[in-house]
Amino acid sequence: MKELIDRLKTSYTVEDYIQQRSDLAHITVSKETAVDFISHLQRVEGYKHLVILTAVDWIEDGKFQLTYLLNNPEMKNDINVKVFIERENATMESIHHLWEQARTYQRELKEMFGIDFPGSPGVDKPFILEGWHDLPPYRRDFDTKKYSEETYFPRPGREKNDPATYMKQKLYPNE
């Protein structure tokens, strides 16, 4: 895969190349060249299968990492194309014209992370969470515990125990 990365480096700025396994490499490209780079991989290099499109929230750096995991069915290897975008007003160019299923992924990312993909069909329609008005729930700053404590009432008569102290009392009551 190193030859491929070297070849790609001649026309694109490819950073942070990590060979995770013999059949999986991670690379980072800039937001501006990402879609062009991905369509080059699809059309020229044979990375025809979009395995996943997902995001990772690096809240401490104020960035979202978009992961386009592309698979080459002939060479039997994968490239994880990482694109870092700003967390504030996160937007990214859409890839729905390259793969039909990309619109579903982008719709989900809009809902769960608040990353916008202008032009992607149906991207504003709710996918999983209908009638959700809170912070996009998969962001790191969304506190699921706080949300559930505020939204749902505690069930009466339910006792809570700290597992460590409870087991200690049960097993070693005299200590």
Partner: peptide, 9 residues
């Protein structure tokens, strides 16, 4: 269709 395999994943 065969072409759909990569197009739709």
């Amino acid at each position: 269709e065969k072409e759909w395999v990569t197009k739709f994943g």
